[in-house]
Structure formats: C-alpha cells, structure tokens
Amino acid sequence: MTAHGHVAISCIDLRKQFVLRHTRSLKEALVWLVKGRKGDLSKKFLALKDVSLEVKQGETVALMGLNGSGKSTLLKLISGVLQPDGGTVRTRGRVAGLIEVGAGFHHDLSGRDNVYLNGAILGMSEKQIDEKFDSIVEFSEIGEFIDTEVKFYSSGMYLRLAFSIAVHTDPEVFLIDEILAVGDEPFQRKCIAKIKELSGMGKTLFVVSHDLDLVATVCERGVLLEHGEIVMDGDVHEVVGELRRRSTVQ
C-alpha cells in the first residue's frame, strides 16, 4: 500500500566507535587521572566506517557479512538503541526491532503478562494489544499455556510467542536480526510466510541472517558489510554469490 519511492531508512556517513573500557571502578579511574593519564584506560574500535545507505519504503534488504562485520551495530543504530558517533541516521514511520526476540520477556511472568509488557515495549497501545491478543496467541500456537510462566516454556514456544508479538506490532519498518533460523521446521516456514506477507503488504524489511538461501528467498536486495564498510550493494543473489566466494577463498 505504501508505494516504493519514499525513503524509509536513510543512513549518511554513519560512523560508530566503541570504547573498550578496561575499568568500571572509580578508584582506578581516579588513580589514572592523578598519575597524569598515563597509559590507556580504554581502547577505541571503529565498528562502522562511513556507512551510507538508503532503503525505500517496501524494499526488502538482506544485510550480510561475516561475524563482527557490524551488522547488529547497524541495526541498533537504525532502531535508536545506539547513537552514531558521526553521520546521521533517519527513519520514517514506526520501526520495530526484532534485534533479539524475547528481549523484554520476564521469566517470572505468565505468557499473558508478557504479551502485554512486550507489546507495550514494542510500542503498542493498550487498545491495540487487547484487540490483537487472540490473534497473537493463535499465531504463536501457545494455546492454554498462555497463563503459564514463560520460564516453563520450551525455547521454541518462547520464540514463537515473542515472534508473534513482534509481527503484530504492525510497524512500517521491520529490523530482523538472526532470528529466522530458530524454532522448528513448521514454525520457521510459518514465520517466513508471515514475513513474505508483510513485505507483500508493503512493509520495509531489513534482515540479518546467516541462512543465505533463506534471505535470498525473502529479500530482493543484498548489502554486504565487511569490517564495518559496505563492500557490495545490489541484487540479493549476486551478493549471496559474492559472500559465498569470499568465504571459500578465506
């Protein structure tokens, strides 16, 4: 329904630097100050270097790269969890991060309580959750366990409920980080079907996954990240091919 054309995510010269701090103690920090700041209390590390990227509304983008290449960092910058040290990132519409499914779940609360808490954390209003509650439970296939504390859930149930809440938040932009490859076979198929349905509805998807075959079926465009830099941006099959080539060369 939203036409291709409007920019959904705009990253311009994004730079993110992490400080690997060696101390959490005030005493050590003070000693360091008194001693004339000798030595390094911290080491700096550039996780993203001048990343520029534009994603249009309705596009489905797979973000690929080896471990530590900065994929999660980029997603966190887009969701607002992290703030850039340089450049700007801007988004249009509500962004829901499936950065890690089940973040915000509380083990000692029932499934029902967690649906409300997690729904609210992901930006839903009370009315929206009330309306979608049954649909959330149905999709998750949790059934009567909805009033059981989630610590008694199997990891599959846990994931299904979390995923179900997330897809019901109805955002404009979906950020998905490494969660598609979990859960059992049938539910995974269901998730993928749901994600395809979302993209069919014109939602913007930004997916990180190690399952290259999977992203190739879900996404149209691929972006390859290497050591915090975009090295390739194009058709998903080409990017997957390139990543495969690079992996075998190493």
């Binding site: 920019v7 705009s10 910058l77 887009i78 969701s79 607002g80 969890v81 992290l82 703030q83 700007t88 990132v89 801007r90 988004t91 249009r92 519409g93 509500r94 962004v95 609210a120 209003s125 009370e126 404009e172």
Partner: peptide, 22 residues
C-alpha cells in the same frame, strides 16, 4: 511520525515517560 524522517532514539526525557503511561 509517519510523514517525515526522524532521528531514531532521540527522546524528550521525562516528558516521554508521560506519553508512555501504559
């Protein structure tokens, strides 16, 4: 929010808490 590009993660502090009463 739907209409324009906004910087994610830039809040208005305690005022946002009021908006997030639920």
């Amino acid at each position: 929010q739907v209409d324009q590009l906004v910087k994610p993660g830039s809040g208005r502090g305690l005022l946002d808490v009021y908006g997030d009463r639920f």
